[in-house]
Design a protein around this nucleic acid. Sequence first.
DNA 1: GTCTATACACGGATAGAC
DNA 2: GTCTATCCGTGTATAGAC
Lengths: 207, 207
Amino acid sequence: MVTSATRTRKSEQTRERLLDAAARVFRDKGYAGARLSDIAEAADMHTPGVYYYFGSKEDLVEEVLRVGVARAAAFVAERVAAVPDGASALDRLRAAIEGHVLMVLEIGDYTSANIRIFGQLPDDIRQRHLAQQRAYGDLWRSLLEEARATGELRADLDLSVVRMLILGALNWTVEWHRPGALSAGEVARHATAMICEGLAAPGAPGT
Amino acid sequence: MVTSATRTRKSEQTRERLLDAAARVFRDKGYAGARLSDIAEAADMHTPGVYYYFGSKEDLVEEVLRVGVARAAAFVAERVAAVPDGASALDRLRAAIEGHVLMVLEIGDYTSANIRIFGQLPDDIRQRHLAQQRAYGDLWRSLLEEARATGELRADLDLSVVRMLILGALNWTVEWHRPGALSAGEVARHATAMICEGLAAPGAPGT
DNA sequence: GTCTATACACGGATAGAC
DNA sequence: GTCTATCCGTGTATAGAC
């Protein structure tokens, strides 16, 4: 029995399969380097089939970008919220660092695509996407400001610069981390350690 | 008077102007997104003129990549060598961090192009370039191992992961730093502080 | 919804004049 | 060495059958 409801569900599944494929191909080949035929093939369909679901390559990439930040923001916010009430602001920052790494390396094809292609997008697309990106940045901004307010953060650093250095270290993992080697959790542990406590040995000279 | 020598010099100047333009355009638009016509225009010539100096778009990008790592390696090595003899291994690491940031943000169109496009290159080009990149990685590897050997570095972290996290934080500055805002030197100061000493306030609880 | 066939623009590359 | 003209492959997008 094929009802209207099942047809709609199948259509939505196909659309999602297509989006998933697009995220992976964009991440691997870049925006200009990704061909619609590559994406269609990865989604087990032929090129014109893409146009049944999306009006253009631009529409497709914008949806990937939108989903990418939305998921990252939701996932990281959830992890931060899950930190016990008595914990310090620095602990919440650590939770955000861990969450971002896990999202990027384990569950976030859309987020990692976002990270890798954002810089090469045509100006108009990038401009349209900036607002959503800023919302995620605000999450980090408040985490850092909280920690500064409680005195847990050293006071001699500009928080905007710090925020971008942190996100840089984390985002760059997309470029070098290969699944099967070190686990995402281990990468996250290294990141929180370096960012929060620093590399220098506690009692070492010159620190 | 137009001698053979002056003609050769002019030719080399033009070739260099072309390479400079290619580095900027590749950095801004990515590999696939950069058109030879964009590059030619930025170098004040017409598209076919490019083929007098380079056999193909691939040749052109490979030369940009080659120059990019070579300059970064030379510049950072020089800065590390300039650190006074009595200084600690951690001080040499700090010098490398500063040098890398300055190269990327102030003098290194080739290096920043390298950073931004490496991930989107066709496999064969990337493969050919990996060896040169590894040589630069070795410089960082030995700096970290030295600091570990002298006990200046905490002992619970994998140095390969640490190396990539550091380079990630530094390389990502290409994505967000805009000249005219914060100076490259200030960015470098933030990077050395966060990486070596960490963000946590010295006497704060929970560290 | 998904197929085949195809229009059409664009970009890399070459030819050949000057 | 640099120009104009042009070839040709490729990739986005559409038309229209099923």
